[in-house]
C-alpha cells in the first residue's frame, strides 16, 4: 500500500540519452555476467539496466590465471574479454534474457572501427537490446580496447561508425587512463554519442615478492572498487561541466551515499560493478535507498539532484 503511494509521489525513472530506465541503477559490464548468474540473489526486474559482459565479433578465451587480485579497498582484474562472440550472444543467450522484461544493454569491443560497426549492425537487427555501451576503454586486451579510448580522433570515428549502423542509444565508455578526459568526452559527443559511461577501470598491477613476479597472468589489470571512487567523481565532475550529454557514472559504488555523490556531480544514472561481488543484492538496495532519499528530501524525482554539487 505504502509502496503504491511512493510510486505516485516520486519519479525515479531516467532517460539516458533515449534509453529509458525505471530507476537510475545499472549493473556494470563484466560484473554481472549475462544477468542470470545473480538471479537467485537479487530481483533483476528491479534493476534499472543490466549491462552484459563485453562482447566481441569472434569468440575470445581471455587471459591466463590468475585473473583477479584483491587490493586495498579494491581489486585488479585482467579477464581479457572472455566471451562467446556476438553471434552466440545474440542467438543463444539473448532470447532467454529478454523474457524478464529487463532493460538490457550490450557492451561491445572491437579490434578495428569496422568491427565495432559490424557488431552494432548485428545487434540492431535483434530486438531486446535497449542500448549499446561501447567499450573503448578495456585495459586488458592487446588489440583494440583502450587504444581507442585514448585518442580523441579514434573515439570520434568509432562513435560515428556505430551511430551509422544503429538507431539504439550509443553510450561510449570512457577510459580514465588519459591525461585529458574532457577532450575525449567532447570527441565522443562530436561523433554523435547519446550518453557517456564513465569510468572504466584504472590500469594497475600487483607484485608477488615471494615469486618476484607480477601477480596477474596478464601483468597489468584494471583497478575497480571503492579505491577508485574519488578519481571517478573528479572525472564526471569535469565532464559534466563541459559536455552536455547525460552521464552513466560509476567506479567504486557500494552504497546509497556513494550513488548520491555520483548523481550530485552530474551522473544521471549510476553503474555498480565490483559492489555486486560484495553484496549481490546491492543494486536493488541502492535503488530503494535512492528512492527513500528522494522522498525524505521532499523532491519530485531523482533528476532534480543531477549535478546539484557542481559549482
Amino acid at each position: 500500500m505504502t509502496k503504491e503511494v511512493k510510486q505516485v509521489l516520486v519519479d525515479m525513472s531516467v532517460n539516458l540519452g533515449g534509453m529509458k530506465m525505471q530507476n537510475p541503477i545499472a549493473v556494470a559490464s563484466g560484473t554481472f555476467g549475462y544477468g542470470r548468474e545473480y538471479q537467485d540473489f537479487v530481483d533483476i526486474t528491479r534493476i534499472g539496466a543490466v549491462i552484459v559482459k563485453g562482447t566481441t565479433l569472434e569468440e575470445r578465451y581471455g587471459n591466463l590465471a590468475p585473473r583477479i587480485y584483491e587490493t586495498p579497498a579494491g581489486m585488479l582484474n585482467a579477464i581479457g574479454l572472455e566471451n562467446p562472440g556476438i553471434d552466440v550472444f545474440l542467438n543463444d543467450y539473448l532470447p532467454s534474457l529478454r523474457q524478464d522484461g529487463v532493460t538490457l544493454v550490450a557492451n561491445i569491443a572491437g579490434n578495428t572501427v569496422d568491427e565495432y560497426a559490424l557488431i552494432s549492425r548485428k545487434i540492431d537487427k535483434h530486438p531486446g537490446i535497449a542500448g549499446i555501451e561501447l567499450n573503448i576503454s578495456c585495459p586488458n586486451v592487446k588489440q583494440g580496447g583502450m587504444q581507442f579510448g585514448t585518442d580523441p580522433e579514434l573515439v570520434k570515428q568509432v562513435v560515428q561508425a556505430v551511430k551509422s549502423e544503429t538507431k539504439l542509444p550509443v553510450i561510449p565508455k570512457l577510459s580514465p587512463n588519459v591525461t585529458d578526459i574532457v577532450s575525449i568526452a567532447k570527441a565522443a559527443r562530436d561523433g554523435g554519442a547519446d550518453a557517456l559511461s564513465m569510468i572504466n577501470t584504472l590500469m594497475g598491477m600487483a607484485v608477488d615478492i615471494e615469486r618476484k613476479r607480477p601477480v596477474l597472468g596478464n601483468i597489468f589489470g584494471g583497478l575497480s572498487g571503492p579505491a577508485i571512487k574519488p578519481v571517478a567523481l573528479r572525472m564526471i565532475y569535469q565532464v559534466y561541466k563541459e559536455v552536455d550529454l547525460p552521464i552513466l557514472g560509476g567506479g567504486g559504488i557500494v552504497n546509497t551515499r556513494d550513488a548520491l555523490e555520483f548523481i550530485l556531480v552530474g551522473a544521471s544514472a549510476v553503474s555498480i560493478g565490483t559492489g555486486n561481488f560484495v553484496n549481490p543484492a546491492i543494486a536493488e538496495e541502492i535503488a530503494q535507498g535512492l528512492e527513500n532519499y528522494v522522498i525524505e528530501q521532499g523532491l519530485n524525482g531523482i533528476n532534480e539532484l543531477v549535478g546539484a554539487a557542481v559549482l
Binding site: 560484473t31 554481472f32 555476467g33 590465471a65 582484474n77 549481490p280
Partner: peptide, 22 residues
C-alpha cells in the same frame, strides 16, 4: 582459484581443462 563473485558472473576464476581445448 581466486574468486570474486563466486557465481559465474565475473570470469575471474577461470581454468583450462584438458577436454575444453582453449
Amino acid at each position: 582459484e581466486y574468486m570474486a563473485c563466486g557465481v559465474g558472473a565475473c570470469l575471474g576464476c577461470a581454468r583450462k581443462l584438458k577436454v575444453t581445448d582453449n
